[in-house]
C-alpha cells in the first residue's frame, strides 16, 4: 500500500542522510521524498511517499523514523484530509501546429508553458500526483524529451471532517 508520511526534523547537517540511510538499510521503498524549510527556523519538513507491504512494516517505519534523534514528529497522513502537491517539468518536442495542440491539451490541467525553443517546449504542472501522471501520459505520444518531478509535499487541511472521504492511499 502507498502511504504519505510527513516528518518534522531538526535541520542539522546530515539529517537527510541519516533518514534515507535508515530507510535503505531497513529495506523501505521510497517512491518520493521532498524536503524543505518549515514555518519555524531550524526545523525542516519532509514528506515521503512509500510503498509498504503491511501494517506491521508501516508501524516499523514510523517507529524507526521517530527513533531518529533529529526527528521531532512523524505523521502518517494518508487517511487524513490533506492537501498534497507535486510539481513536474516536462519538456516535449514540438513546433508549429503541434504547439497549439499541446497548449490546448494542457489548459484543463492548469499547466503552463514556461519555456519555448525552436523544437521543444517545457510545461510546468502542479497538482496531486494522479493529475500530474494523467498529464504526463497524455503528453507521452508527443515525445517527452526530459522530465523531472519534485516529489509530493503535503500537510493536513485546516479542518478535518469527522469522516474522511478522500482515499489518498489509492489516488495520491
Amino acid at each position: 500500500m502507498r502511504r504519505i508520511i510527513t516528518a518534522t526534523v531538526q535541520n542539522r547537517s546530515g539529517v537527510l542522510n541519516r533518514i534515507t540511510g535508515m530507510l535503505y538499510r531497513r529495506q523501505f521503498n521510497i517512491e518520493s521524498i521532498s524536503v524543505g524549510a518549515s514555518e519555524t527556523e531550524g526545523i525542516s519538513k519532509m514528506t515521503f511517499v512509500v510503498e509498504i507491504e503491511d501494517h506491521q512494516k508501516l508501524e516499523q517505519l514510523t517507529k524507526q523514523l521517530n527513533k531518529q534523534i533529529d526527528v521531532l514528529k512523524v505523521s502518517d497522513i494518508t487517511e487524513k484530509a490533506i492537501v498534497a502537491r507535486e510539481l513536474a517539468l516536462i519538456k516535449v518536442g514540438g513546433s508549429g501546429q503541434l504547439r497549439a495542440e499541446i497548449q490546448g491539451m494542457i489548459t484543463p490541467f492548469r499547466a503552463s508553458v514556461i519555456d519555448v525553443s525552436r523544437d521543444s517546449l517545457t510545461i510546468q504542472v502542479t497538482g496531486r500526483p494522479d493529475k500530474v501522471e494523467a498529464l504526463i501520459s497524455l503528453l507521452k505520444p508527443y515525445g517527452i524529451k526530459e522530465l523531472t518531478k519534485t516529489g509530493v509535499t503535503a500537510f493536513l487541511r485546516g479542518q478535518q471532517p469527522t469522516q474522511v472521504t478522500e482515499l489518498n492511499a489509492f489516488t495520491i
Binding site: 506491521q56 508501524e59 516499523q60 517507529k63 524507526q64 521517530n66 527513533k67
Partner: peptide, 11 residues
C-alpha cells in the same frame, strides 16, 4: 525502553 523493538519481529 525502545518502542521500535516492540512489534518489530513478533506481533
Amino acid at each position: 525502553i525502545d518502542p521500535a523493538e516492540i512489534g518489530k519481529n513478533v506481533s
